[in-house]
């Protein structure tokens, strides 16, 4: 039997991992949704085909993240979810609309296909924006001042930008020809917008939140810490240059923008968790205060140890089955 402190670390880490994996995986398929053209059926079909076999499993990471919060930190879970009641409802409706649009666009009458594509796009934007909006409110400890609402709006736009970036990078990896050229342009544009967004959030956040300011600027290891944002911003520049080269020759390095986007996500996520650790509800509850009963968490840990590696193995299997450039979706 592990003690509560160990369990706080393990489950805190697992929850962080689930959120990070969710942001990267569902991030790219939401991003593809945000980019979906409503006036080009061929491109839309190819883009949908590139995420078809994966989106469902990607979204399951959200259920896992919420589930882990619910299981390991029930008090934190209920504080956060009650505070974010309406934004969560809007996000869920966005996810519902885009999830069903994926199936209806292929199965409903042809004349309604464009409508479902529009729904898919709107649902994706809504879900992505609301996730960023909620992140902003979370960072501001759920204050309802004008300032924190403005910050949440900025954060919402930032997440839409970031998902568009990784979605476009996914398309660079999975498509070819004309669509790939478009994706390279989208990726470059989204990269530049996200670059500005990350800088804006990084400057504003410590200025309006004194705890975050303390965590970074009153730390003895400030110099080491600062390599993180510097590295992150440098990666944006490197990615931009790579995309420039890809415009001339798409034969090599098509996977690089996606890999770099994923690393940028990891660095931003690390920066964020560092700002709040060990709090799970900023300024209110730490992971140690909120942790559930050890007998329950130990019981679930057996499952985690056996099942999580299995999930990773068959996820890799699924990505290998659909490896390479995307082919039209078909049920046979």
């Amino acid at each position: 039997m592990l003690n509560p402190e160990m369990l706080s670390y393990i489950y805190g880490g697992l929850m962080a991992l689930a959120i990070l994996v969710y942001a990267i995986l569902d991030g790219y398929d939401l991003g593809v949704g945000i980019l979906l053209p409503t006036n080009n059926d061929t491109d839309a079909d190819t883009m949908i085909a590139s995420i078809g076999p994966f989106w469902d499993a990607n979204e399951t990471w959200l259920v896992l993240a919420v589930g882990l919060a619910l299981i390991a930190f029930p008090m934190a879970h209920s504080i956060i979810l009650q505070a974010l009641y309406l934004p969560i409802t809007v996000m869920l409706i966005g996810l519902i609309i885009r999830g069903v649009a994926f199936d209806f666009r292929a199965k409903a009458k042809v004349k309604h296909k464009k409508l479902w594509d529009t729904m898919f796009k709107l649902g994706s934007i809504l879900a992505a924006f609301m996730q960023g909006f909620m992140l902003g409110l979370y960072v501001m400890s759920f204050e309802t001042s004008m300032l924190s609402l403005l910050f949440a709006l900025l954060s919402g736009a930032g997440v839409v930008g970031a998902y568009t970036l990784i979605g476009a990078a996914w398309l660079v990896l999975k498509t070819e020809g004309e669509l790939q050229s478009k994706a390279i342009h989208w990726c470059q544009f989204a990269g530049r917008v996200t670059f500005i967004g990350v800088i804006a959030v990084s400057i504003v956040n410590p200025l309006i939140n004194s705890d975050v300011y303390k965590a970074w600027f009153e730390s003895p290891t400030l110099a080491v810490l600062l390599t993180l944002p510097v590295l992150c911003l440098a990666l944006f520049v490197v990615q931009d240059r790579i995309l420039q080269t890809l415009k001339l020759n798409t034969k090599k390095g098509g996977w690089l923008p996606f890999a770099l986007s994923a690393v940028i996500f990891i660095l931003c996520f690390f920066g964020l968790t560092y700002s709040f650790y060990p709090y799970v509800v900023p300024g209110q509850l730490t992971i140690f205060d909120a942790v559930a009963a050890p007998e329950s968490l130990n019981f679930l840990l057996y499952g985690v140890i056996v099942v999580v590696p299995t999930i990773i193995i068959y996820t890799i299997f699924s990505y290998r089955v659909f490896w390479g450039k995307v082919q039209p979706l078909s049920y046979y």
Binding site: G67, G303, V307
Partner: peptide, 9 residues
């Protein structure tokens, strides 16, 4: 919690 957790996993 653990019962729901096992369902997800």
């Amino acid at each position: 919690g653990p019962l729901l957790g096992y369902e997800v996993l």
